[in-house]
Amino acid sequence: MSERMSVVGATKGGTPVQQLRLTVLGGFDLHVDDEPVRVPLAVQRMLALLAVRNRPQSRCDVASTLWMDTTQARATANLRGALWKLGPWRSELIGCDGDRMWLAPRIEVDLTQVVARARRLIGPEPGLRTDDTALEGLEDELLPGWDDEWLAAEREALHQLRVHGLDSLCTRLVEGGRGAEAVCAGQAAVAADPLRESAQRALIAAHLAEGNVSEAWRQYEIYRQLLWESLGLRPSPQLVSLVAVAQP
């Protein structure tokens, strides 16, 4: 796709743009004042890389990461082409300083917000903020369907962070007496990683906090069978002790 982005300058119908929002969780989307923007694939990949890494990158690194199956000269030319396709939007979306480039700070990125929320949840800050209890984002995969090699490590890092965040959210909700919400968070953690014992333990504890002993025991049995069939392992003594006193 050789054309530039199908939007106009830094204004929309003569009105200055108020908001730029980039989505990389659950899929790629770029919105300007809540309206979707049509973005060429090369531009999508460049913006996604800068959003995911969330720090200044050298042009050489960006080019070689996005076009690793070609020569450095060809990769650099491809990057120049992607920047050209931004047209008058380049200064709105990309910051540059010599050989360094980054995503413009005014762009709201869903990944940045979710990472900050997950880190708060697993950190020492007491209590929960209003937006901390939302599961949105914590359940979403990074750019599903994309097969870029550089994404593999980034996906795994995000997976570990968001499951830790869901575990902690579930525990914090139990401690706050919010059992139903805790169960939802625990179910999301288990769905993200069914073999992860900390996720199973958080969900079982949420069921017990609500007084649903049968649900807690049923979840334990599901996990015990899954763990044995998948890995030939048994639940830890800590998990066994958690459900032992509640066995029907």
Score class of each variant (00 low, 15 high):
106 R>E: 03
165 G>S: 12
146 W>A: 14
67 W>L: 12
211 G>R: 07
182 A>I: 02
45 R>T: 07
4 R>Y: 05
126 P>K: 04
41 L>H: 09
43 V>W: 04
112 T>A: 15
232 G>R: 00
171 T>H: 12
140 D>A: 15
67 W>K: 11
27 G>K: 08
96 C>A: 10
151 L>C: 06
67 W>Y: 15
211 G>S: 10
5 M>S: 03
47 L>Y: 02
132 D>M: 01
50 L>H: 05
181 E>M: 09
174 V>S: 09
14 G>M: 03
126 P>I: 05
175 E>D: 15
54 N>L: 14
31 H>R: 12
30 L>R: 04
24 V>T: 04
227 L>H: 08
126 P>F: 02
99 D>I: 05
180 A>L: 12
208 L>W: 06
89 W>A: 02
214 S>C: 04
244 A>F: 08
90 R>M: 06
35 E>I: 07
151 L>W: 01
89 W>I: 00
223 Y>I: 10
117 R>N: 02
45 R>V: 04
216 A>I: 00
166 L>R: 06
83 L>N: 08
60 C>M: 14
34 D>Y: 01
58 S>E: 15
218 R>Y: 05
78 N>F: 13
127 G>C: 03
4 R>E: 08
27 G>V: 09
134 A>D: 12
119 R>E: 15
76 T>W: 14
193 D>E: 12
128 L>V: 04
218 R>P: 01
228 W>S: 14
56 P>W: 10
149 E>S: 11
158 L>D: 01
93 L>E: 00
62 V>S: 05
137 G>D: 05
96 C>S: 08
165 G>N: 11
181 E>K: 09
225 Q>P: 00
161 L>E: 13
11 T>G: 08
99 D>A: 10
76 T>F: 14
9 G>A: 11
24 V>I: 04
196 R>M: 06
216 A>V: 01
66 L>Y: 02
230 S>M: 13
120 R>I: 02
248 P>S: 12
85 K>G: 04
26 G>Y: 02
